[in-house]
């Protein structure tokens, strides 16, 4: 325990992250500004105040989205 790794699916791609990574930690590790993104965790939208309380598990699916220009 402790030094383990696990695999998650981030934006459709397999990514290896350390065990005990929270959603908040994942987002910060990617240098993303929390105000500018929308996060879907296992197909449900999660608000910013719950990111810190979600500890990632093997095979979790995380989608990080953003509003972009469009017509």
């Amino acid at each position: 325990m402790g030094a383990g790794k696990l695999i998650i699916i981030l934006n459709g791609t397999e990514e290896t992250v350390p065990e005990d990574t929270t959603l908040e930690g994942l987002i910060r590790s990617r240098g993303l500004k929390p105000d500018s993104i929308i996060v879907e965790y296992n197909f449900g939208l999660v608000k910013r105040d719950s990111w810190a309380g979600i500890v990632l598990k093997e095979n979790d699916r995380v989608e990080i989205l953003r509003f972009v220009g469009g017509g």
Partner: peptide, 17 residues
Amino acid sequence: TVALRRVDMDFQEENIA
């Protein structure tokens, strides 16, 4: 109008909203 897309981890944009 705006669109919603996956964040590109390598090329980060601003939130257009």
